[in-house]
Simulated assay, not measured.
Amino acid sequence: MIQRLQSVWLLLAAAAAFCSIKLSFYSGNLIKDNQPKAFVSLTAQSNLLLLILTAGVGIASLIAIFLYKIRKMQLRIVLITLLVSLLNLGLYFAETQKYVPGEGKFDLTAVFAIFIPILLFLAIRGIRKDEKLVKSLDRLR
């Protein structure tokens, strides 16, 4: 299980997802009606939908690690997780529009959220390589 490279990619994606729950993605002055500007950091905890999607990506990545014997199901779960992580990233960028333009910045820890789809894509490549290897070995028997 751990000898497979995609298990490492999935574990790193899960770790990045769980880190991005607590660490900030964007910091700046938030625009609110009839209230003064307030310096706020955007994390997954600041929005319920972001929290649910981020935790779902992390949990699904961990579950996919243990499905190494059922590669087709593992591939489906990782593909769905990749789509959810891209949706999650889009929601992060949509939330940054609520901040005052020019008075905010992306934090260094935003890298965690950006790396999740990349790591999931690398895991998909590894799963497909395993599937091709198993099919080629079946032909030799």
Results as ranks from 00 to 15, higher is better:
38 A>H: 14
32 K>Y: 14
111 V>K: 08
60 A>S: 13
137 L>R: 00
135 K>P: 00
70 I>C: 01
75 L>F: 14
14 A>G: 00
21 I>C: 13
39 F>I: 11
24 S>M: 03
78 V>I: 11
26 Y>N: 08
88 N>A: 06
124 I>E: 08
11 L>I: 01
43 T>D: 03
69 K>E: 03
88 N>E: 05
126 G>I: 01
1 M>T: 06
82 L>N: 13
86 L>G: 09
59 I>D: 15
41 S>Y: 07
50 L>V: 00
131 E>H: 08
111 V>W: 09
25 F>R: 12
132 K>W: 00
92 Y>L: 09
18 F>D: 00
123 A>V: 02
115 F>T: 12
14 A>F: 03
109 T>L: 09
10 L>R: 01
73 M>L: 05
88 N>F: 02
139 R>A: 04
37 K>G: 13
39 F>T: 09
118 I>L: 10
29 N>R: 15
85 S>M: 11
69 K>A: 04
58 G>H: 04
36 P>Q: 15
5 L>N: 04
59 I>C: 15
139 R>D: 05
123 A>H: 02
1 M>N: 06
50 L>S: 00
13 A>C: 07
30 L>V: 14
101 P>C: 08
11 L>P: 00
64 A>H: 11
96 T>P: 13
106 F>L: 10
80 I>P: 05
88 N>I: 01
35 Q>I: 07
72 K>I: 08
7 S>N: 12
88 N>M: 07
106 F>Q: 06
9 W>T: 10
1 M>E: 06
6 Q>A: 00
113 A>D: 08
97 Q>C: 14
51 L>E: 03
45 Q>K: 07
63 I>F: 08
62 L>H: 04
102 G>K: 01
87 L>Q: 12
26 Y>R: 07
48 L>V: 10
52 I>V: 03
119 L>V: 09
74 Q>P: 07
87 L>K: 12
94 A>D: 14
115 F>K: 10
37 K>N: 13
138 D>C: 02
46 S>W: 11
14 A>S: 01
54 T>W: 04
73 M>F: 05
100 V>D: 07
53 L>Q: 01
31 I>D: 07
36 P>D: 15
13 A>K: 05
7 S>T: 12
41 S>K: 05
66 F>K: 05
76 R>Y: 15
88 N>Q: 05
42 L>D: 09
20 S>L: 07
140 L>V: 08
49 L>Q: 01
92 Y>C: 06
84 V>T: 14
5 L>R: 06
118 I>Y: 09
95 E>S: 13
13 A>Q: 06
6 Q>F: 01
59 I>V: 15
90 G>N: 07
47 N>F: 04
126 G>N: 07
91 L>C: 05
31 I>V: 10
15 A>E: 04
12 L>A: 05
17 A>Y: 04
87 L>R: 11
115 F>L: 13
73 M>Q: 05
55 A>N: 10
62 L>I: 05
140 L>S: 04
131 E>R: 10
135 K>V: 02
66 F>Y: 04
